[in-house]
Design a protein around this nucleic acid. Structure first.
Lengths: 81, 81
DNA sequence: TATAATAGACGCATATATGCGTTATTTTAA
DNA sequence: TTAAAATAACGCATATATGCGTCTATTATA
């Protein structure tokens, strides 16, 4: 009958770090008074990607991190608490 | 006749940051007196990947960066000069 | 030298980040 | 409560990071 519920969990490795990074980006973005769209435009990173990053859904690359840091007027170092 | 030479350049975006990161990893690894293989084992990152990272050939993810930082007994923050 | 240790350089498969677009949901303000 | 703004959540294509293995080249040491 197959009426059950299903859940899938993928990509567990260092998952807490990824979540924490997303929260940090969100926090920094708000401190600067930017919307996700503002940040997307400034950093030249797609809006949908900003969302995925902040929700901790993706394992962001250093290149994207650098684009975000620059848009937030921070050093790469300061992206990390 | 097509006897010329060809060269391909890919993935230019933030390329200097990627190079600088590789150099930083190499420097920190040597400071700790570790071979690439030592670091690969400690961080549970494939040896070939350590090489690619140090040579600036790959756009490393935060998850891998965290594994490296931990193996080097550093914070993620300190992976950046 | 030679030998070992280390690093570089491939090739290949798989997983997934990115990039772009669209629609739904939630939040904020009027 | 309604409209607008912001964010979430999809779908899909493409590029590429990772993971694993193997082989070559370089460097250090006996």
């Amino acid at each position: 009958m197959n009426t059950g519920q299903f859940a899938f969990v993928i990509n567990i490795k260092n998952d807490k770090v990824i979540k924490a990074f997303g929260e940090r980006v969100r926090e920094l973005r708000k401190e600067k008074g930017l919307s996700q769209e503002d940040l997307a435009n400034k950093a030249d990173v797609p809006l949908s990607q900003i969302g995925r990053i902040e929700r901790g859904e993706v394992n962001t690359t250093i290149s994207t991190m650098y684009s975000l840091a620059t848009a937030l007027e921070l050093s790469l170092r300061d992206l990390f608490a």
